[in-house]
Design a binder for these strands. Structure first.
Lengths: 148, 148
DNA sequence: GTGTAATACTTGCGTTCGCAAGCTTTAATG
DNA sequence: CATTAAAGCTTGCGAACGCAAGTATTACAC
């Protein structure tokens, strides 16, 4: 009987909920950012010119374009991100990482790395963590937007 | 270099987003349920008298009690769930699975099992799926509410 | 070129959710 | 008992989100 896939999926959902709970708090209180906003900045950091269009961002964040538009608005006001247009294609409105945003995303990354390490600090060997990361990576293998 | 925990966490977030996208559609169109509603029913199915208080459900769903109250309302209208009170403690308002709810949750479970199997159908060995499930289970080891 | 389709973005609307406040009921303290 | 604390639930409010519709711009077909 092969209910292993089902068990795996359920465990995935539960693990993600736990991680999100653990991380959202500190991310908000320390950096003033929601988890989704942090991911948005990290995607920009990895992008070619540190900028992405709204639809590209939406795909990477598994969100709708309207959500990205609304997420970018307050981050533009606080100067983490700037709006850029493309001279070649007037439809495009890039979300570009500013210097302030670049600085912040570095700190955010450090926070996430520290919290991630804490998550596996007890009862986990390095090999187990690496193995889990590799297996999870295979689920999203075809997708774009690697943040590591 | 010990960025493995960070990579693992990022991959976990991405994998969950993909799974949620994949499952929400069919779950909604076939059974008329959101993923959270399906999880709620499955928690009730596993509970001692097939019923749980709202705060217990909230903990298991990683949601707030008010969210559970609001989730239960339409499901009560459609007869999947019934409200029960406790003669010993008048504060308690159980969410109890009805016969219709029990029938539906069985079908929902089959759908989820089938979709889960599809998720790993290509490029995954049984051992790899089982290994991933086991590792993910360790993240939420201390929590209550096992759905398998 | 001209008309049609496709793409990128934004906005209105409804839904879902958490937080804080409030109500009711039970537990604990003296 | 009486009083205070705690627990469970609900409601008001605001924030975040997706969908559908609308606008503007580019690409394609002929």
């Amino acid at each position: 009987m092969s209910k292993a896939p089902f068990t795996t999926v359920i465990n995935l959902l539960r693990a993600q909920a736990l991680v999100q709970d653990r991380f959202s708090g500190e991310l908000g209180s320390v950096h003033g950012l929601a988890l989704n906003e942090a991911l948005l900045l990290m995607h920009l950091e990895k992008a070619p010119l540190r900028r992405l269009t709204r639809v590209d961002l939406a795909k990477r964040l598994h969100a709708s374009p309207s959500t990205v538009t609304r997420m970018a608005m307050p981050m533009e006001k606080t100067g983490l991100v700037a709006r850029q247009s493309d001279p070649r294609d007037a439809r495009l409105a890039y979300v570009a990482l500013t210097e302030a945003g670049l600085t912040l995303v570095g700190e955010v990354r450090k926070t996430l790395e520290r919290r991630s390490a804490e998550l596996f600090r007890d009862r986990w060997s390095d090999a187990e963590v690496a193995s889990l990361g590799k297996l999870l990576g295979r689920i999203t293998a075809g997708e774009l937007g690697d943040l590591t």
